[in-house]
Amino acid sequence: MTSYSLTVINESELMQGSPTFAVVAELPEARTASALSTAWLTQVIHPGNRYTFTWEIDWGFAWSASGTVKDYEWVANGALPADPASSAQCAATFDYMSGDFLLKPATQTPAPNNDQLWIEDSSAIPRPSVQPSSVGITLNGQPACVADAGPNLEHIFTLHPTYYIVAGSFKQSQMVDVATLTQTQELEYDDGVASLTVVLTDANTWNVAHGTLADPARPLRQ
């Protein structure tokens, strides 16, 4: 399994306090009104410091006994492993039994296609107006994309994340809408590229380069 890394260097003195750098792994479904992305990876990085995030493409299912609300933290109450290449792990059923929610492997699953994961809400899931709940897809153990649940809903998640980085006041797993964030930088992990370095410059702009040993004093690719 390929390991990915992102080295972040903070050379900015313009941001007040101690900024939190957040990486967002936006799935296509989060570009619609049906789902939200999260601050998937977060770290406070003081001016002059660097930090390296590392991850693998390891998917999972998760659920929460609360709905989705932008800027609030999404907290998982249960999880299952997921594998888009496995007929046994490409789909899950979200159910409600004996006063508690239950996420379980689906008994009838679509044919795995390596690109998508499915969650089906049973008819027993309460309406959001009665008891809010939500389901999500995790990447490397952290929620990446979440959606409100409800009776008889089907959620299809396409596993082609677009990565972004942003700096500001963020908490781990905070629900965000990438379209409304300012000063984001897209991170392109092209074929064969597994590591990037990104610098927040003293002009409060982003520079990105391949590799993890980039010199922040050297001009980088915009």
Rank of each mutant, 00 (worst) to 15 (best):
I125W: 10
R127G: 09
A33F: 13
S66Y: 08
P28I: 08
S129K: 15
L36K: 03
A62Q: 07
A82F: 11
S123L: 12
I119N: 00
K70F: 04
R31M: 10
M97Y: 15
F53E: 06
A25E: 09
S66N: 07
D83H: 05
T38F: 11
F61V: 01
S123N: 09
T93K: 09
S129D: 15
Q108W: 14
Y96P: 07
T32C: 09
I57Q: 03
S129P: 11
G136N: 00
A85W: 03
F53Y: 13
I45K: 05
A91G: 10
P112K: 07
Q43S: 10
V135H: 03
P84N: 02
S133P: 08
P132T: 01
P110Q: 01
T93F: 03
D83F: 03
D115G: 10
P105Q: 02
W55L: 15
L41Y: 02
K70G: 02
Y72A: 14
A88S: 15
S122H: 04
F53V: 06
E73V: 15
T42L: 00
I45F: 05
G67I: 08
W118R: 08
Y72Q: 12
A39T: 12
A65I: 05
P19S: 03
T107R: 09
G60A: 09
F94A: 02
A92M: 01
Q89H: 13
H46R: 14
L117F: 01
S66V: 04
S87G: 11
V44S: 10
S98D: 10
V23I: 14
W59A: 08
T107M: 11
K70I: 14
F61R: 00
T32F: 07
G48V: 01
R31N: 10
P110E: 01
P126Y: 07
A22K: 07
A76H: 12
L27E: 00
E56Q: 15
H46W: 03
A39Q: 13
S34C: 11
S98P: 03
I45D: 05
T52W: 07
P84Y: 01
F21N: 07
G99A: 05
F53P: 02
F94D: 03
K104A: 12
G60C: 04
I125N: 05
W55G: 10
P105L: 02
L36S: 13
A65H: 08
A33L: 11
A33C: 13
L27W: 02
Q108R: 12
S134C: 05
E26M: 12
P47E: 01
A25K: 09
V75G: 05
A35C: 02
A25Y: 11
Y51L: 10
W118I: 06
D95W: 03
S64N: 10
S133E: 02
F94S: 02
E26R: 13
M97A: 15
T54R: 11
P28N: 04
D95M: 00
I45P: 01
V23Q: 01
A30G: 11
V135C: 14
